[in-house]
Design a protein around this nucleic acid. Structure first.
Lengths: 200, 200, 200, 200
DNA sequence: GATGAATGAGGTTTCATTCAT
DNA sequence: TATGAATGAAACCTCATTCAT
């Protein structure tokens, strides 16, 4: 039942190796050999499992998206109001197991290459749409109609920008701190702070 | 004095071609041949002018950074207060001649590849530092010390995020509108809006 | 005694699959995986039975040669004169169970690759020698010595040529018709037709 | 005017090397590296000129077909009767510069692989149609309508069969002798020999 | 200044074969 | 007996770069 087949185990190992290797060398520069070395396997066996390099990349991105989705669902389960759910969406993006320099780096790599790979672009579109629908649903409960779209744009831009900064600065930011900052941004965007305080 | 040498003219043509080609194919996938075709030249002549592919890429990024710098300087020249100068920094990033889908795409390509090219990384660091120093200088005039850093982070993240969104959605946003939205974000971050209104 | 072991049954299935797969993809392009798929088996099991790809090919060719040999022996058993035996040799080559587009195609594949595989070349030599000795034996009874060799060459060339045409045109020729035409060629070569009529 | 460009010269060299290499190793087994070695060039430069292995093969076959066509046209020019033209068609196939073991071997390789390469198949069809139309045109002048098709089939089969034999026996046959034998076959098929003599 | 020609280096992918199960 | 799993070897092809012209 919960048993994992050898295939599943191997898949996961290879995907972990891919994440590390992509972070080290860059998405479209990394070679199958480098990934294989990282996984203590042969390049041929990666093709055996994923069919091609692009197949591997797609599987890797799918893996990350699933992680993000799970984090978001988990947060939602414990939230009891629109505001808390809004926080939960932000928290998912800055969750402990997601918001590391390595993973921010991978995300950026995928973003940058999505426009040139239909398979990546598709995953990106799906994810973006899902996050957006969550955002909008909650914002509609909290803001007048005409402010919903701009608020969503600002929040989404903020989240993307933070990831990008972490990816580029290669300087780790504690996830908890990132979540605190994100909550403040939500508050400011919703005008919930009397004094509008962006500092800790 | 304003006379351009043949070399300068050719350089500019090749850089323009590079921007187009990188946008079409992606930074690390585009080939010298594709760039050459875009410029109606030969791959060999590009090496003649820029030494190597990486040299060309560095020159191209430098070209874009110069454009950005000029836009910022021009804005500063007309600004007469900290707030106006803050607006000017944002405006430069969303200037008519910079904020196109193509160019946002290129920026993202450069960002994504900077960590893997020392020459690109250096340019990125320099630029980032310059923008940051502008931001901080103005914010210090407008906010208490402990709120300066978070405000800067939020504004920078917002700007990066917007570029990224435009690059990925491939859906053009009118620069003027982007500037208006950016001003509102500045206002909100500074708590300058009594009603804290993010909508038009 | 006529009992077939599992091994024999499996062998035959795999050989049939090989014939189909070689026809579909070409001798030196077909892969073990494709053959295995055709036989609903695994590539590994083919190696278990035949040792290697070349072993399988040799067995397959041997299988076809045996079929041809049997057809020739059967024809000989019913022939009562040199001329009838000559007809029988031709008939064997155009027998119902041998003269199909698929099999002509296989033959051509084997011919074309024999020069590059010692094992195939050996089979080819043996077969060719056997057919030749039959031909010569009968022709010697029907023609003066100095006309035997040229007549053999012509008949052999004709037979090969017809197979080749069928293999390449991929347009089936009814075996019975091929046999009729072959008989006429024999007659012409032997000058047995007063009017020398090559038409039906 | 008659000047050959470097490109033409190189093309020809590479094609000659291809013929030799294909003869040595077999059509679909020969590697680019082997061909390159034969031409004292690099594999990369072959792709530079022909785009791909298949492109090279197509060009090589086209080269051979052109040679055959020229030989046929030359023969036709000197023929003054249907019979002489018929001889000329046969002679072209067994011309001194075409009827060598090496070239017969190449032809067979191309035939065997044509069914699996659209580009080769196309060339084959075109050539076959051209030869056939020549044959039929002359045969119609020499035979009653109902004997034309069978006579053509027999002659074509004979020609193909002889090439195949030479390719497989790897035993050279003097072209002049092959032509003499071919003329006799024509005579027999047309019933022009009172004694129907297939011997020298 | 400009470019065909040429190539070495290297990447992805395929495939026959082996082996543990 | 049968086959997933794994891989070394090798093939094709691409591409940045060099160089003679």
């Amino acid at each position: 039942m919960g048993r994992k087949s050898i295939r599943d185990i191997r898949n996961e190992e290879l995907i972990e190796a891919t994440i590390v290797a992509v972070h080290k060398h860059g998405y479209s520069v990394v070679t199958m050999a480098e990934i294989a070395r990282e996984a203590d396997a042969s390049a041929a066996s990666i093709n055996y499992y994923f069919g091609s390099k692009e197949g591997l990349m797609e599987a890797t991105m799918r893996h990350l998206l699933t992680k993000l989705k799970r984090a978001m669902i988990a947060g939602y389960a414990q939230a009891n109001s629109p505001l808390e759910r809004l926080y939960a969406v932000m928290d998912a993006n800055f969750a402990d197991e997601l918001f590391s320099t390595t993973q921010c780096s991978i995300w950026m790599q995928f973003w940058a290459n999505a426009p040139y790979s239909e398979r990546l672009a598709r995953l990106h579109r799906i994810n973006r749409a899902r996050v957006q629908s969550h955002f909008l649903a909650e914002l509609r409960c909290l803001l007048p109609a005409e402010r919903v779209a701009p608020a969503h744009d600002a929040l989404q831009a903020y989240m993307d920008g933070v990831w990008l900064q972490v990816a580029l600065s290669a300087q780790a930011v504690p996830p908890a701190e990132a979540r605190r900052a994100a909550h403040r941004v939500v508050d400011v965007v919703l005008n919930r702070t009397s004094g509008g305080d962006l500092s800790a």
